[in-house]
C-alpha cells in the first residue's frame, strides 16, 4: 500500500498534512504517535471513513482513495478497530462469522474458524456467549480474530495494546507475528515506542498530523523517537 500527500480536514481544522507512506507487502510496519498525532484520522482515511482533500491511496496498484469502506475491505484491507467495536449483542461465534462476511472467506469460514480458535483458545471456550460479556483483552482478541476471518492481505491493528495487561499484550503481539508469517501484511498503530520498534520491520513517527521520522525499526534510535513523539525539541 502506498499513501501519497494526504491532506485531511475536519471543517476548517487540518488534521493531516501531506502524509506519505509505503507499506510493503508481507512486512510489519508501525505508525507511532501520541493522542492527537493524526494516527486515527489516517486509519479512517485509509478505510474510507474520512475523505482526503488531496493525495491518493493506492493498494496493489489500485486507487482506493474514493472507494466506499465496504469495497475497500472487499479488496483485502481489514482493520481491527480500536476499543470495543465488537457486535455486543451477537455471540462470539456470530462475531467471527461476520468477519467472514465477504464471499471468498465465507466459503472457507469453518476452516478459518478452527484456525482462529487455535490462535485464541479462550474464544473457543466462550463461543456461544454474547460479546458484551467479554473483558477488554478478550474483546481485543475477538476484534483481531474477526479481522483474520476475512483473510486479509493487509491487516491494520489500531492500538491493540491499549489498556491491556502486559502479559496479554505480549501474547497478542506474538499472535500478530504468527499471522504475519502466514503472509499477511501488518500495519501496527501504537503509542508505545519500544514495543512498536521491536515488533516491526519499518516505522513511521507522526506528530501533529505530519510524518516527522521514518526508517527501519532496528535503525531508529529509541530515545530520539521518544523525543519526537513527546514533541520535545525540533520535531514539535
Amino acid at each position: 500500500m502506498k499513501l501519497e500527500g494526504l491532506d485531511v480536514f475536519y471543517g476548517d481544522f487540518q488534521a493531516l498534512y501531506g502524509v506519505s507512506m509505503e507499506i510493503p507487502k508481507g512486512k510489519i510496519v508501525s505508525i507511532i504517535g501520541a493522542n492527537g498525532s493524526g494516527k486515527s484520522t489516517l486509519l479512517n482515511t485509509i478505510m474510507g471513513v474520512n475523505r482526503p482533500k488531496a493525495g491518493t491511496i493506492d493498494f496493489e496498484g489500485k486507487d482506493i482513495t474514493r472507494l466506499r469502506t465496504s469495497d475497500i475491505v472487499a479488496l483485502g484491507v481489514t482493520i481491527s478497530p480500536e476499543g470495543s467495536s465488537v457486535f455486543e449483542d451477537m455471540s462470539i461465534e456470530e462475531n467471527l462469522l461476520m468477519g467472514a462476511y465477504l464471499p471468498d472467506p465465507r466459503k472457507r469460514r469453518q476452516e478459518n474458524l478452527a484456525r482462529v480458535y487455535e490462535l485464541f483458545p479462550v474464544l473457543k471456550e466462550k463461543e456461544q456467549q454474547l460479546a458484551t460479556f467479554l473483558s477488554g483483552g478478550q474483546r481485543q482478541m475477538l476484534a483481531i480474530a474477526r479481522a483474520i476471518m476475512s483473510e486479509p492481505k493487509l491487516l491494520i491493528c489500531d492500538e491493540i495494546s491499549l489498556g491491556l495487561a502486559p502479559v496479554v499484550v505480549k501474547d497478542i503481539y506474538r499472535k500478530i507475528r504468527e499471522i504475519n508469517e502466514m503472509g499477511v501484511t501488518i500495519l501496527l498503530v501504537e503509542q508505545e515506542v519500544k514495543r512498536s520498534l521491536q515488533s516491526s520491520d519499518f516505522s513511521y513517527v507522526m506528530v501533529k498530523g505530519r510524518v516527522v521520522m521514518q526508517g527501519l525499526s532496528a535503525a531508529l534510535p529509541e530515545t530520539e523517537v521518544k523525543d519526537a513523539y513527546l514533541g520535545i525539541n525540533k520535531y514539535a
Binding site: V49, S70, A74, I79, P81, S85, D89, M90, S150
Partner: peptide, 17 residues
C-alpha cells in the same frame, strides 16, 4: 446477521465488508 451487525455498529459492519 449483517442486518443485526449494521444496527449494532455501522462502522464496524462496514469494516466487515
Amino acid at each position: 446477521r449483517s442486518i443485526r451487525a449494521a444496527s449494532s455498529n455501522v462502522t464496524a459492519a462496514e469494516f466487515m465488508g
